[in-house]
Every structure is written in C-alpha cells, then in structure tokens.
Simulated scan of single mutants.
Amino acid sequence: MAEGYAKIFLKNKYEVQSAGIETHGLNPNAVKVMAEDGIDISKQKSKLIDPNYLKASDLVITLCGDAKDRCPVLSEHTRSIHWPLADPAQAQGTDKQKLAVFRQVRDEIKEYVSKLG
C-alpha cells in the first residue's frame, strides 16, 4: 500500500521501490482497499530487499512491527524512518473486521506518505 501511494505522491521526488526481508505475495485485501481509494496495486510484486540497492538509497522507510529491527544495516548516508503501523495481514476476526484494519492502515499510510511530499 505504501508503494502505491508513494508512486503517486512522491514520483517527482524519489525513485520508489518496495521490498522486504521476506516475500509473502500480494494480499488481496490490500488490493481491494487501495482500489477503494482509486489506486491499482494489483500489478505490484512482493520482493526481497536488494542489499546493494538498499546501501545506495537516500531514504528507507520501515513499516510495521519489527521491520525496523530486522532491516539490514544501512549506509551512514541513508536517512531512515520507521512508521509503527499495525500489520494488517495479521488482523483477526471476520472478513469485515479484517478489511476494517486494512482500511485503517491504508489511511495511516496515505497520511504519512502525503507528508513526505
């Protein structure tokens, strides 16, 4: 979801890439709630971090849980930001309750990304 918003709000400021320390595939709930906001992320892929690309990055943003602690070592010239969001993929309950968590996190991500622009 962050990649989807960043590619809209930050496209003229940053080269936007998204990756993680594990791949889990694209969550259909993320696709659904982003589509509700007019953003198609259905073609995005779950990718592993490229350590060389990471070391050359100017800004790295970690999201959710322990991502900050598990992120590989960054260059001293890399600015790092952590957004302590709930991991919506871990949401429990009915489908409706899970979607509510995805919407909440989507809205938080949108707010954070828009402030970077």
Rank of each mutant, 00 (worst) to 15 (best):
R70F: 12
A6N: 01
V105G: 01
V31G: 06
P72R: 03
N27F: 02
V16G: 03
A2V: 09
I81H: 05
T78R: 09
R79F: 12
S57T: 03
Q44I: 10
G20D: 01
Y53L: 14
H77R: 10
K11H: 06
G93Q: 03
L63R: 02
L99A: 09
D107I: 04
V16D: 08
T94E: 07
K13I: 07
Y53W: 05
K11A: 14
K96Y: 14
V33L: 11
A2M: 03
G4C: 13
I41W: 00
P51E: 02
Q44E: 04
D95L: 15
K55I: 15
A56K: 11
N12H: 10
V113K: 00
Q17K: 15
G4Q: 06
T78N: 11
N27S: 12
Q90Y: 00
N52S: 15
Q44H: 08
C71G: 06
A19R: 15
S42P: 09
A91W: 05
E22Q: 13
L10M: 05
P51K: 04
F102A: 01
F9Q: 02
L99N: 04
Q104S: 13
K98Q: 08
K110P: 02
K68W: 02
T62W: 00
F9D: 03
Q97E: 13
L10C: 07
G93A: 02
Q97H: 06
I8C: 12
Q90D: 13
L59V: 09
G38I: 12
K32N: 15
Q92A: 14
L99K: 06
P72G: 11
V113I: 10
Y112G: 01
N12F: 08
A6G: 01
C64G: 04
K45I: 11
H24R: 15
L54S: 10
Y14T: 02
E15W: 04
D50K: 15
D66E: 05
